[in-house]
């Protein structure tokens, strides 16, 4: 098969001064192309063949006759030829079922049966459960998620163990209500509020602001009605939240590291730290 080449193409290319290698390759390719074209032309004819019992126009109608039509002719049948072929095929079928009349033929198969189908139930369209979820890219929790969670908790435990071995939790002198240390600082997570105490009345800094903050945070999903979760569609609220977080982080940092005795401003690298965890 692979040896077949198109001799004419080969000769032409040699005459054009191409090398033998190129000419052989192109001639082979041409031969393969020709073969494929031939096959493509044969296929529709072959498909038509089993059904086609029609003789070519000149042969005269012989019912159920041999497929005498050549492939080329089957590919280009006229409408009249097609109708003739169908008529002959139907005649042949009636012959098989005992030559009954044309209208009776379809029901002959069910002769003697009282019902041809049975109604089991009527189902209204609304009664069919419709599942609208779309296929999602999912993986098995075990082992994929569980193993990564296990690694994460091992890492946290390892980090905490190292910290606990090398850094001791502070324990100062016994509590003494009559001896106020200078400065007295809240735990770091309340340091932002303590910093605000320097600027506002205690009721504002200690009660109003934290309450407004908590209620405001809880109200976020009901205030932000933007349905999109994509960052590019929610720039405003992302900027607002980031400003809020940075503002608190700065307050906590300032309160923790930049406030010394009397809660006055200090530079931690000059005056030292007044901070305990």
């Amino acid at each position: 098969m692979a040896e077949e080449i198109d001799q004419q193409v080969y000769d032409d290319l040699i005459a054009q001064g191409k090398s033998e290698r190129v000419a052989t390759a192109k001639a082979k390719a041409a031969a393969v192309r020709q073969q494929k074209q031939q096959q493509a032309a044969e296929e529709p004819a072959q498909q038509a063949q089993p059904a086609a019992s029609s003789p070519p126009a000149g042969d005269g109608g012989q019912a159920g006759g041999q497929a005498a039509a050549t492939m080329a002719e089957a590919g280009v049948m006229t409408p009249e030829q097609r109708q003739e072929r169908v008529r002959q095929a139907l005649q042949a079928k009636q012959g098989e079922t005992g030559g009954q009349a044309g209208e009776k033929a379809p029901s002959a198969k069910f002769a003697g049966q009282e019902h041809t189908h049975r109604l089991l139930a009527m189902v209204p369209p609304s009664g069919i459960q419709q599942i609208r979820g779309k296929q999602e890219d999912k993986v098995y929790t075990w082992p994929h998620l569980i193993s990564s969670e296990f690694i994460a908790l091992m890492a946290v435990t390892a980090g905490l163990t190292v910290m606990a071995v090398f850094v001791n939790a502070p324990l100062l002198a016994l509590a003494n209500p009559t001896n106020t240390p200078n400065p007295s600082k809240a735990p770091w997570y309340f340091m932002g509020l303590q910093e605000l105490l320097l600027y506002f009345h205690p009721m504002v800094a200690g009660v109003t602001i934290p309450t407004v903050m908590l209620v405001g945070l809880a109200a976020v999903p009901y205030v932000d009605r933007n349905p999109s979760r994509r960052p590019e569609n929610r720039k405003t609220i992302i900027v607002a939240f980031t400003v809020f977080m940075v503002f608190w982080a700065v307050l906590v940092m300032v309160g923790s590291f930049f406030r010394g005795p009397g809660l006055n401003w200090v530079w931690p690298w000059v005056d030292g730290l007044w901070f305990a965890l």
């Binding site: 502070p170 324990l171 100062l172 002198a173 016994l174 509590a175 003494n176 209500p177 001896n179 106020t180 240390p181 007295s184 600082k185 809240a186 735990p187 305990a276």
Partner: peptide, 9 residues
Amino acid sequence: PWDQLALWA
């Protein structure tokens, strides 16, 4: 812990 840090914080 009931030390000075705890009480005053």
